[in-house]
Design a protein around this nucleic acid. Structure first.
Lengths: 147, 147
DNA sequence: CTTCCTGCAAACCTTTTGCATGCCT
DNA sequence: AGGCATGCAAAAGGTTTGCAGGAAG
């Protein structure tokens, strides 16, 4: 929804936020991740770099990034568990599609989010900063086995 | 996404599901609700009709309704707390728009969900059964006070 | 030097589960 | 009668918080 720095680490610096060793480790893990990560995943990854890093620090860093709009928070329709998932906000919105049969999650880029943002502004006067689209849909394999 | 009965209660019967006193109370509360309800809200409402009704029953009923596609589950971007929200699935999709400034949630009907469902099918072969669109957006009042 | 972050541990909240009992069909 | 739903209580996650010590700017 807006221009972005090449990395979260850089984005943090641009925003004048303190860049501690722990925050660097956490954002590096998010930068490297190709998709969504749970807080638990992220803690595990961070601990590979520093085994003393604490859960609370991970949550606090996630809250910070979230409040600055640098990451998106998803829950992936509970298909992968009750917790939340995080991923770096990227240019170009995408929908998350989850199959309730097998739990598989795929992503799909879509321009419809732009349209939606425009419509929201026109019809409600609200100013969108992020859009989350999550679709529950049977994958082809599960459609076949359900038939 | 498909035709619906006039009430959840009726829908339950149509699906050949056992309609216990507790389930009736819970679905009546959902039927009466104009918008989203948390599990906690729902328990509170149900207890007005029967103070002995149990939390576990509410959760089990919600799981049942969810699995049958009769209700939608939302988390409203965590703006109202960490839990989930439920509402009867209605004809005509709508997006939930939440203001991070004041926590206000508004709904907006949108046809874009239909387009999105079509696109998903065409591009991925997945068969959508529900779509969740949640938008984080500053409301007019909060835009003004932020300026 | 000051501010704010971290680790720790406990608390908190929501949601789930095993089990014995009871209700619906 | 049989199968399934309920209530109860405890457990299981996930997430948040107060506090004392420590690191970053």
């Amino acid at each position: 929804m807006e221009a972005q720095a090449v990395s979260l680490q850089e984005a943090l610096r641009e925003q004048g936020l303190r860049l501690t060793r722990q925050r660097r480790i956490v954002v590096e893990a998010l930068d490297r991740a190709e998709g969504h990560l749970s807080a638990r995943d992220l803690l595990r990854l961070a601990r590979q770099a520093d085994p003393t890093i604490n859960r609370a620090t991970v949550y606090r860093t996630l809250a910070l990034l979230k409040s600055r709009g640098l990451i998106d928070e998803l829950d992936l329709l509970h298909l992968e568990g009750v917790g939340h998932f995080y991923e770096r906000r990227v240019e170009g919105d995408h929908a998350h599609i989850g199959c309730p049969g097998c739990g598989r999650i795929v992503e799909m880029r879509t321009e419809l989010a732009q349209d939606l943002a425009r419509t929201v502004t026109e019809r409600t006067g609200f100013a969108p900063t992020s859009i989350r689209i999550e679709v529950r849909a049977l994958c082809p394999a599960c459609q076949a086995s359900a038939a």
